[in-house]
Structures are given as C-alpha cells and as structure tokens.
Amino acid sequence: MMELICPAGTPAALKSAIDAGAEAVYCGFNDETNARNFPGLNFSRDELRRGIALAHRSDAKVLVAINTFPRASRVELWQRAVDDAVSADADALILADIGLMDYTARRHPNQRLHVSVQAAAANPDAIAFYVETFGARRVVLPRVLSVPEIAEISREAACETEVFVFGGLCVMAEGRCSLSSYATGKSPNMQGVCSPASHVAYEQTPQGTTSRLGGFTINRFEPSEPAGYPTLCKGRFSTEQAKGLAERQPEQRVAFLDRGGLQNSSKFCEWPYALTRSGRPNFAAERAILSELRGMEVRPESIDRGRARLSVNLGARLLSLTRPEADRRRSGS
C-alpha cells in the first residue's frame, strides 16, 4: 500500500490535495513553530481544526509540523502548538526538538510522533534513540542522503522512514544551518524561514537582474537568463580556490520527477498543480517513481524485516510506501 502525503500551505490547498486523492496532508501553524513560516501561508487554530475535520471525513490524515526549535524564553509557544494540534485531532505531530518531543511524549503519550527532517536523524542509532526514548513512529530522513544510504538506513531503522525525493536541497546538515541567520538574523531552525522574503531585493538594470539577500548579492541574471530566488546557499559563489554555481545535485537525489514532466518547485503547494496539469490523475507519476525506487537500491523486500515502511517525500510531497504485503505475496516470498 502506498500513502501519498501532500503539503498544504492554506486551507484551500488542503482541500485540493484531499480532493485529488492524497491520503495525508502535512501543514503547520502560521507562526514560528513551523519551518515553512512564509508570509500569507499556514493555518490558524480554527483553520487547522476545520481542515483536520474535513480530512477525516475523507479518510485522510493530517500531520502537523511543529518543527522549529523552541527558544529558551518562549518554550510555551511551541508547547501550546503541540497541545492545540493534539486537541485539533492531528493524526501525527512532526517534531524536531528533543525537548518538545519529551514534552509531547509525557503530556500526550498516545499522540503519534514523527521525527522531522530538521532533526537530522541520519543513521540507525539516532533513529533508535528517538524510537526508544520518545516512541517515535516515523522519521523523515535528511535530504542530503543518497538512494543507497536511504536503503541502508531503512534496512536498519527501528521505525517507518520517509525521504525527500523532490525538493530544495540544503547543503548543510538539516537543522544546523546558520547561513540564513548570519545574513538576515532569521533562520529556518528558529523562525521557520530560510532566506526570508523580508530581506530579499531584486534590482533591475539594463544588464539584467541582481538578486540580494540581506544586502548580499546572491546572483546576477542576464536579461534572457532564467532568474531565481536568492536562497543563500544556492547562488553563484567565488572563492580564492574556485567559483561556481551552487544548486541541487540531481544525481544525489531520488529526483525522477523532472523526467515525468513535473517542475522543480519549492513552492509549498505547487506540486499537485504540476501533477494535474500534466494530465496524470491519481498520482500516477509518484507511483511510477516508486517503481523506479523499487528497481534501484530500495526494494521493499530489502527494506526491513516485517514492519518497515518506506516513505518517499516528493519535494513538497511525501510518498509513503507501506511495506507491501501484496508484493510479498505476489513474489511468493
């Protein structure tokens, strides 16, 4: 069985994803407890409650990301987010901070807990710690992992795993990047925003467009050249040793989607649009990708010994593959 988990930046996106057949949606509150704390996005308490009720009427799940790191002076903001998500009937909480996981495990022992990608749990021992200590049921693996690494970790993992397949690649260890904080005073780990729009400037000149972040020039684009958002770690760089363009490394990712005609978009809720625009209903592209995954290192039969589930995050989206008993039966193993 395959489970599709989609992001939702707004109630409209949540409804659209569910209408399109997503089995689960993940989203967050409209504050700094959520690592996608972009202006105009995310959910109020009331919107989340209504969104979860809507999802449950369609037998879909809602996973609530509370995946930034509480500051010492404002821990209660994150704890209140946990309490409110639980009372809104969230199917799982996606957490990054061990203090918050401890709070959740103690205060809400029956609440399903997922380890956020921001926690950077990149090896089986780290995953086992989260499972044994907090009862974590799933871990979202760091985006820097290769397919063979994903397969290796998934074989050993003590819980379900998810991986990003199609998304913006952080060059730093997840949850431990200070670049954005250095340039703008705001970071994905603390405020939920990397390279925040509040610090972005585009300058149009006859020579083209210059993009800046916090006063730093990140990139210059010729008039006919496709432009980009000035994400701090994805511009053009020059050092004494070399110069180059930092961008995604497709070979390192499980990013088959471009072949399927999907766009690389970091926009929170863009992917279903791309999917349906290409005329493929029912997530056929994702399922095809999963087939490719199976054909590579990550074969369901090699993942685990009975409980495993491979989840694949398609950039802004998650594919979750429950260990396919049907496949096992088909193969006669």
Partner: peptide, 26 residues
C-alpha cells in the same frame, strides 16, 4: 514563481508583502 523566474513578471520593492499578497490570493 515560474512566471517571475522566466522574467515575464517583475517584482520590485517589498518582496515579503508581494509574497503575502500572492498567498492570500491563492
């Protein structure tokens, strides 16, 4: 995003305000 990156849309000034507007309209 795609429209902007293809240069068919040009945005200047407070990018955060424009982003909020876009998401609100969406």
């Amino acid at each position: 995003d795609a429209l902007m990156f293809s240069r068919e849309l040009v945005i200047e000034g407070d990018i955060e305000a424009v982003l909020a507007l876009r998401n609100a309209i969406d």
